[in-house]
Amino acid sequence: MQPLDQLLSRIKWDKAFGDGAFEIGYYDRVAARIVRHPLTDLLFEPTGKDSFLLMDEEGVYQRIPLHRVREVYRNGELIWQRPDPAKRDRKTIPEK
């Protein structure tokens, strides 16, 4: 799987690929669900490579860490998804 930062860079710099309607789905801890927003609603600061800003309903910018991004959609189609840590097979440590 392609790392998220590389995908975001491709969207920004690859004109042919970036010509689409992109949405980011991130895990909202308060709502306890994945929330989708158009990529155009997000603000990426030049120095903030590990987060983005999103304006809430009250007009206040909230910083969202990139590790909470779970999905990326292009023209309504899921093109990237972070594995769900709760569903990963975990190696068990044998009991002594």
Rank of each mutant, 00 (worst) to 15 (best):
M1D: 08
Q2C: 06
P3H: 12
L4E: 00
D5F: 15
D5K: 15
D5A: 10
L7R: 05
L8Y: 07
L8M: 06
S9W: 15
S9D: 06
S9E: 07
R10P: 00
I11L: 02
I11Q: 04
I11H: 05
D14M: 05
D14A: 06
D19L: 05
A21N: 06
F22L: 03
E23W: 13
E23A: 09
E23L: 12
I24A: 00
I24R: 01
I24W: 05
D28A: 08
D28T: 04
V30W: 11
V30R: 10
R33T: 06
R33V: 02
I34E: 05
V35E: 03
V35N: 00
R36M: 10
R36N: 04
R36Y: 15
P38V: 02
T40H: 09
D41K: 15
D41N: 09
L43W: 14
F44P: 00
E45H: 15
K49D: 09
D50T: 09
F52V: 01
F52H: 02
L54G: 02
L54F: 14
M55W: 06
D56C: 06
E57Y: 13
E58T: 12
E58H: 15
G59Q: 05
G59C: 09
V60F: 12
Y61D: 07
Q62L: 10
R63F: 12
I64H: 07
P65R: 11
P65M: 08
L66D: 01
R68A: 02
R68M: 07
V69M: 03
V69Q: 04
V69L: 08
R70G: 00
R70E: 00
E71T: 10
V72W: 08
Y73R: 05
Y73I: 03
R74H: 07
N75F: 12
G76V: 03
G76M: 03
E77T: 11
I79M: 06
I79E: 02
W80Q: 04
W80C: 07
R82Y: 14
P83W: 11
P85K: 11
K87W: 13
K87D: 07
D89T: 13
D89M: 13
R90P: 00
R90I: 07
K91R: 07
T92N: 05
P94S: 04
